[in-house]
Amino acid sequence: MGLADYYRTLGLRTGASFEDVKAAYRKLARKYHPDVNPEDQQAQDRFIKVTKAYEALLEVFYPDDDVVDDGPDDELDEAEDVSPVQTNPGLSEHEQKLKQDSYQQLNVLLKQQKFPRAIALVEGLAQRITHDSEVRQWQAITYQRWGRELITQGQLGKARIYLDKALKTDPLNKSLWVEINRDFQAIEQKLT
Rank of each mutant, 00 (worst) to 15 (best):
Q42Y: 08
A43G: 02
A43F: 03
Q44G: 01
D45N: 14
I48A: 09
V50C: 04
T51F: 00
A56S: 13
V60D: 06
V60Q: 08
V60R: 12
F61S: 10
V67D: 14
V67M: 06
V68N: 07
D73S: 09
D74Y: 04
L76H: 11
E78M: 08
P89W: 06
E93W: 00
Q96M: 15
D101Y: 02
Q104G: 02
Q104F: 10
L106S: 04
L110F: 00
Q113K: 15
K114N: 14
K114D: 14
R117N: 13
A120T: 10
A120L: 02
V122K: 11
E123D: 09
E123F: 00
E123N: 07
G124F: 01
T130R: 15
H131K: 12
S133C: 00
E134T: 06
V135G: 04
R136M: 09
W138I: 00
I141L: 14
T142F: 03
R145F: 01
E149M: 09
E149I: 00
Q153Y: 04
G154I: 09
A159F: 03
I161T: 12
A166F: 01
A166L: 03
A166M: 06
L167T: 03
L167F: 02
K168I: 01
K168E: 10
D170K: 11
K174F: 09
